[in-house]
């Protein structure tokens, strides 16, 4: 065991150990692609079900009835749709990451995984509560950008424990959330970009970079 190593070999080994012990590297890029696809399908389902037009006015006609009150069936559909997307995305992320960890002989449920999830959970739950508060105040238009914003912050918070690419995804989601707070009323469109297209782009890039 006490064999002396070549300097180069030593440095390589040190780098690998540092990486493996401090970063959650089992996260699969494919999970991002799946999540993005589910999101796009889910949003397409909303557009199809309510025959949404491309104009903001037509969209608002669906979301709000003629008295200016929110249309309950519209929001109920979106809520169930979103929960379904979340469930499918999370399950595919868990499945794909477990598979990748097993392939590389890495532990899946260790301190590091717990730290990643915990760091994700805190901003996300704050965001969830904040969205409920927005709903209670009747600020429906701000819910979609707020979800993007808090999701971005949650990603940013975990990015130091996983691939650096996540940091860029986080910054993109945060910018999109802020932009969406200015251009109110395009919630679904921003969701499609943030949860759909961004996930697919970054997921595909990560898969290309680390898994092929």
């Amino acid at each position: 065991m006490e064999n002396k190593l070549e300097p180069l070999e030593t440095l390589t080994e040190i780098r690998a150990l540092m990486e493996r012990s401090s970063r959650f590297i089992s996260l699969s890029g494919l999970a991002g692609v799946f999540a993005g696809t589910f999101a796009l399908l889910g949003i397409a389902a909303v557009a199809y079900r309510f025959k949404l037009p491309y104009t903001l006015e037509g969209y608002q006609n669906q979301a709000v009835n003629m008295y200016g009150n929110p249309n309950p069936s519209f929001y109920k559909f979106i809520l169930i749709d979103a929960l379904l997307i979340l469930f499918l995305s999370l399950s595919s992320a868990v499945l794909l990451s477990t598979r990748r960890a097993r392939k590389n002989h890495l532990p899946i449920w260790d301190k590091l995984t717990q730290r990643v999830l915990w760091n994700m959970f805190i901003p996300l739950s704050a965001g969830g509560i904040f969205c409920l508060i927005l709903l209670q105040h009747g600020l429906l238009e701000l819910v979609a950008p707020a979800t993007l914003l808090f999701y971005g912050l949650a990603l940013l918070n975990t990015s130091k424990y996983t691939y650096p690419d996540i940091r860029y995804l986080a910054l993109s989601e945060i910018s999109l959330g802020l932009l969406g707070s200015f251009l109110i009323g395009y919630g679904l469109l921003f969701w499609a970009i943030g949860f759909g297209i961004f996930h697919i782009i970054y997921g595909a890039r990560m898969w290309h970079k680390y898994e092929r």
Binding site: E2, N3, L5, M18, K111
Partner: peptide
Amino acid sequence: ESRIRLGIMSVLLVNDWIEFVELKDMLQV
């Protein structure tokens, strides 16, 4: 000079506090 000490230091350098068992799992010793 030893491989295990290098391993210990590498892991500790990038983490706050590491438990004995975790260290053992990571270094396979």
